[in-house]
Design a protein around this nucleic acid. Structure first.
Lengths: 192, 192
DNA sequence: GAGGAAATCCTAGCACCGCTAGACAATCGA
DNA sequence: TCGATTGTCTAGCGGTGCTAGGATTTCCTC
């Protein structure tokens, strides 16, 4: 069965290539530029090949989103673990979150703005998404305060971060001042 | 010049019809269903007529967004004015905001998710957008707290509301619990 | 190694999109 | 009533996501 194994490896490699290329193209020129034709050309295969790996463009976006969730979880955990106090952890987490959104806008879009066909907040939610939320919960749960459900607190804090990230990037909020906004957010929301 | 005036009235009427129809179609079937062909068919004109009123689809979205901003400002002000204390005003404002987003998802998308070609947070920002922000500022500025710039506070609070609105509607947050989230948000963020 | 089966891939095309050029018809002022 | 202007439509451009069907390569068996 060595032949079949090799084929599977090659298939898996090509699948990774598709996702990586889609992400690359999206970061370079935005998701609008990620058309099935351009994507196919970049990976040096014809269009239909994409459809032998994914149901459609939506699923490709979803794959990028899952990759992004894994990375974001790691980034958030790394930032939090480098801080000593609960409050410092929350600040570090918030900055890491916004930094991730700013440095990987296309991935962030895939995760939260575009339709990647992913289920959220349900049983069949993919593991990376659950884990990204868990990464937030680990640090934010510490400062939820008495009588406040940690998950609920995490949701609210996360929503605030998400709002800041999207509104800032869409030009809805004046740039600069980002750190002051984070400071205010942490000061008020975190119960320390 | 009566003839010309009549023509201008008719033109303005048709322009309103276009915007209203686009909004209607978007609320019914989502913005993806708002194609220039379908829109033209609904208003019973041919496609090119749309382009004699708007530069393109983006501008039509922008027009819907401006309409929405005006309505949202009114809704927020109405809710706030019906409350007695600063804290109650903030709660009422938050609920009104989220209610608007939930009841007019397509309009909310036009305002904040889609590209309507509108400038934000700049001098040439259209008046309705400025006014919508002003409506938030009126009530939120009251509870910014000492040493916190009212505009900055409003931005943060607004971002939190926006995050809640979008994440909830996109299925990223479990439904229900919405009021508890608002309660938490107001409790912590508002300095009373 | 040769031949047939199976897996793989590509060419070509569908229906739709936003947008526009240019022909046509209605409306206007003289 | 006529010519000019304005308004509108038909037809079509290049692009999109996606797919059917044929060609080609690859594999296993004899």
């Amino acid at each position: 069965m060595s032949v079949q194994e090799r084929k599977e490896r090659e298939r898996a490699g090509r699948q990774r290539l598709i996702v990586a290329t889609a992400r690359e193209l999206a970061e370079e020129q935005g998701w609008d530029a990620v058309t099935t034709r351009r994507l196919a050309e970049r990976i040096e295969y014809s269009q239909p090949v994409l459809y032998s790996h994914f149901r459609g463009k939506r699923e490709i976006i979803g794959a990028v989103a899952l990759e992004g969730a894994t990375e974001m979880a790691a980034a958030v955990r790394a930032a939090a673990s480098a801080a000593a106090t609960p409050r410092a952890r929350v600040t570090a987490l918030a900055l890491a979150y916004l930094d991730f959104a700013e440095r990987h806008p296309a991935v962030y879009d895939a995760m939260f703005q575009l339709d990647g066909g992913l289920a959220f907040a349900q049983e069949d939610t993919p593991e990376p998404l659950k884990d990204a939320f868990a990464a937030l919960l680990e640090s934010l749960g510490e400062v939820a305060g008495d009588g406040v459900h940690p998950a609920l607190f995490t949701e609210v804090f996360w929503a605030a971060l998400h709002g800041l990230a999207t509104l800032t990037r869409a030009g809805r909020l004046p740039p600069g001042d980002a750190e002051r906004r984070v400071e205010l957010l942490v000061d008020r929301l975190a119960a320390v």
